[in-house]
Design a protein around this nucleic acid. Structure first.
Lengths: 173, 173
DNA sequence: AATTTATGTCAGCCTTGTTGACTTATTTTC
DNA sequence: GAAAATAAGTCAACAAGGCTGACATAAATT
């Protein structure tokens, strides 16, 4: 060792001339980190983690979805889901109902407590988004939504579209 | 238990009337998940994880930064950093140089191997971003950048600005 | 000379993901 | 109606990547 080893320190910053969009890569990293920090603080108070957040969120947005459907949305294994789901059921945030047509299935629904938690977690995230979009016009919001959707793998965009579209709302009139 | 318990399943989807921006909340979740899936696959081939990616990335973007500065960017503990940093040094991706003025400090630099890895990991992410921005004009790109930057905690925006600004590049002319 | 600072290291813990194997209840298929 | 497939639950073991606390070393500062 120690001949023409490629172990010499490179001193110029990576960037120029590569044609790579480092600006947006880094903005996504920092933006997402701070975006998730809001609910993380709240969750810690309940003894929950980010995994609980995702389950509570999607059960509230798609009430009655089955365990298999939830696994498909989250892209995790059922053993991984089982742990956090059990806690959320034990703490009364989520209830299971036997599927009406197929009794092997368990439909997942939020309780009032679970709905309240979902709202509490979403509120600061929505406020952050609201501030970030403030000042821009409708075209800016459209551009951001279009960009984020286009970042999702094409096969998975169907899932995004399956979620409720928030007809009535806050900003309308 | 089992009186007026709040354990009744709630059957209507959370959304309308709350004034909460669920659309963008969910788009950020899905977009970021797929955004990180590209490098994750490559990293697995090296026996590395997402933590290694972040270290390699920032050492390449800010060559010569000290361990303390890196900890500040990543917002993790030094024990947490130590593990992945040691591996990256042992595999010849990063080298440490004793600080010139303060010899307690260790300046971190990428090797040629480390630079190549950073590029390999950034390439698919940049391609994904390029596709997501394609079709839109310069105003759309500006809107997206402004949005993402505004999502970052104000105290931390200084760090974002410290990174190289990619003067010459791919898309210019 | 004493203290503070930058870094490294040891040990143990937690969360959240993984794989593999196996059980039970129910539905579907032949 | 028996056999096979499916939905869900569970046990065990493991890994990555965070965390805290404690302590060691070298170098700079006071």
């Amino acid at each position: 060792m120690a001949k023409g080893d490629g172990l010499k320190p490179i001193r110029d910053p990576l960037g120029s001339g590569t044609g790579i969009d480092f600006a947006v890569i880094e903005l996504l990293f920092f933006a997402y980190r701070d975006f998730t920090s809001d609910p993380d603080k709240i969750l810690a108070g309940y003894g929950f983690g980010r995994a609980h957040h995702r389950v509570v969120h999607f059960v509230n947005r798609m009430p009655g979805l089955t365990v298999a459907e939830l696994l498909d949305v989250l892209k995790i294994t059922k053993q991984s889901l089982a742990r956090v789901l059990k806690q959320l059921i034990d703490t009364g945030h989520i209830v299971q109902v036997q599927g009406p047509r197929d009794r092997r299935q368990r439909e997942l629904y939020p309780t009032e407590k679970g709905r309240a938690l979902a709202l509490e977690l979403a509120a600061p995230q929505s406020r952050r988004i609201g501030r970030a979009l403030a000042g821009g016009g409708a075209a800016d919001r459209t551009a951001v939504e279009h960009f984020l959707k286009a970042m999702v793998n094409p096969e998975l965009r169907a899932q995004v579209d399956k979620l409720p579209h928030d007809g009535g709302g806050g900003e309308g009139l």
